[in-house]
Design a protein around this nucleic acid. Structure first.
Lengths: 325, 325
DNA sequence: TTGTAAGCGTTATCAA
DNA sequence: TTGATAACGCTTACAA
């Protein structure tokens, strides 16, 4: 591997001069600078990030952490993050593992954006510091060095349910996501509140605990079909589960929305193709905004107030109009 | 940041002892080892990978590079890579940029898996070495330190077209991907050869140059609709473009497959939902295999013979049966 | 304008 | 069984 020493030797200067050239310091003569640059080119020299970070404690790389392979909209978040970072001269590395803890320090990266729920609050609290800011997505934390960027789930879900009720639906079932997650709690609460506001009763037996994966929606629908009567509408805490449920119904000859209406949450690619009524989360923007706040914090501009991003309802044909009896 | 020195001081031993404990060397007394381990826990100490890599020139991390945000099946590849690496005690970082060159050296990572076409052959050739093996996906390179893992596009594409012809279709148009890519070339060649084998003529004006993105398939279909007569079947070099074309036809009241048949390539999630006849590429396996070969090469077991992975045809309803006149 | 040298967090060598 | 020390590639005082 060619290092700064090789360049220095070849250029007939000291390593510090090479370093100064590469870091655009002004204390270097024009001809020297030029010569050094040419040699770097010739040797196709790239400064070693390990050495750099180790010495300076400053990195121009941001870490993004996620893991749930089922949910492809993450690509859009990455896209948003990536675009902002490119414009601001930062690099991005992505880590899908708990192992990313290794990279969460100022010699390796300048800060992190965390999406994976498996990264625990306490770990993040320990790591975050004056010179290692963190942005968390989809959870709210209060810590002087951690900024939360969350989707406003409550209002669009409430509005969605109200809209479904306005279309004549009265009997509901709900497929929830992982119970500990803030977004699932919020979505369910909005659902409950909307029913209550309309004096519609909801029974615990109509709640199905899922895990945001398609399979769990499929299973919930299967169980539902065993009961004496189907609800009018199955509300799912995300699209994957809604799609799973649609498949289960379709396989059993139950028509959507004639026999049962279905709603999701996320507006993933498949939701469009399958005509699923859902709530659209602006994922690209979510990534972009997360990156922006992180960089601001990296630059010392403390701002850790929770940021709520809004989502909007997309009406498609898994919800129809039901005759009010 | 707590470092090895802090641990050493607290434990009342030297840094080398701490290092020896953490690297499971046998030259450490049992009680010392235990004490050191306890302190590491207390301080929640994690060795700094930068220092480690710098000194040892050995890393337990693999780099995966990709960039095309439109193609969500990449997640499956990542999933495959990730699973293999986990089982073999390696970590994964993912980089979506040209900037990944920074991480492609033995102090940072042990090797790379490259998917992004923007990483040029010559750059890879320069970087790959005895102790920095590389695996490239979707392109063939001959280099003692670079292994190619490619999909066998030719045979399934030939077979697909033969099948379409057997179903009575005779007039074809083709939407190609980026012309320089090996997979696009192979897919188009197979298409041509299949037509030729059946004495079906193909005119250059029926070739549309796309870029693997949905938009380019959409555009090709739009242009096609301006011509006097539609072909029987539009063959697309990948699913995204096929889906774009389907949308364009649907918007203009042209029925698939009654008015025109469509085929894709990839079997992405949407392909299933939209009933697209296509070729299924085993993406998870592709990632898994790439990781396996990379690790083998990292471990010194030279093996850079090109590996071809096979794909299979999925018949769905965008291809029907046409009356042979 | 340039060079010398210390030090970032590790591991490896060698001496104790 | 342990510890002192050099070295990895780089940046940054500070000296020249």
């Amino acid at each position: 591997m060619t290092g700064i020493k090789d360049v220095a030797k070849r250029a007939g200067v000291s390593v510090s001069t090479v370093s100064n050239v590469l870091n655009n310091k002004k204390n270097v003569g024009a001809k020297t600078r030029e010569r050094v640059l040419k040699i770097c080119e010739e040797l196709s020299y790239h400064p070693n990030v390990a050495g750099k970070g180790l010495k300076s404690g400053k990195s121009k790389t941001i870490l993004f952490n996620f893991s749930d392979f089922d949910r492809s909209f993450y690509l859009k978040i990455i896209n948003g993050i990536s675009d902002y970072l490119n414009d601001n001269d930062f690099d991005l590395i992505i880590c899908t593992d708990k192992s990313c803890e290794k990279y969460m320090n100022s010699t390796m990266t300048a800060g992190s954006i965390i999406l994976d729920r498996k990264m625990q609050d306490e770990v993040l609290t320990r790591i975050a510091s004056e010179n290692y800011p963190i942005v968390v997505l989809d959870r709210i934390m209060t810590n002087p060095y951690i900024k939360s960027v969350v989707v406003n789930n409550y209002e669009p879900m409430f509005e969605l349910i109200q809209g479904v009720i306005d279309r004549g639906y009265r009997h509901f079932a709900f497929v929830g996501g992982p119970e500990e997650t803030a977004d699932n709690k919020e979505r369910f609460q909005a659902f409950r509140d909307a029913l209550e506001a309309n004096h519609i009763e909801f029974q615990q037996k109509s709640y199905f605990a899922g895990n945001y994966r398609e399979k769990s929606g499929y299973t919930a629908a299967k169980i539902l079909m065993l009961s004496r009567e189907l609800p009018d509408c199955l509300v799912c805490a995300n699209d994957n589960m809604a799609i799973g449920a649609m498949k289960a119904f379709r396989e059993n000859g139950i028509r959507v929305p004639e026999d049962i209406a279905i709603t999701g949450f996320d507006n993933c690619d498949l939701a469009e193709a399958m005509g699923l009524t859902t709530v659209s989360i602006p994922n690209y923007e979510r990534g972009y905004i997360a990156a922006r706040y992180l960089i601001e914090n990296v630059r010392g501009q403390r701002n850790v107030e929770t940021f709520k991003i809004s989502a909007k309802i997309i009406w498609r044909n898994t919800v129809g109009h039901r005759e009010i009896l």
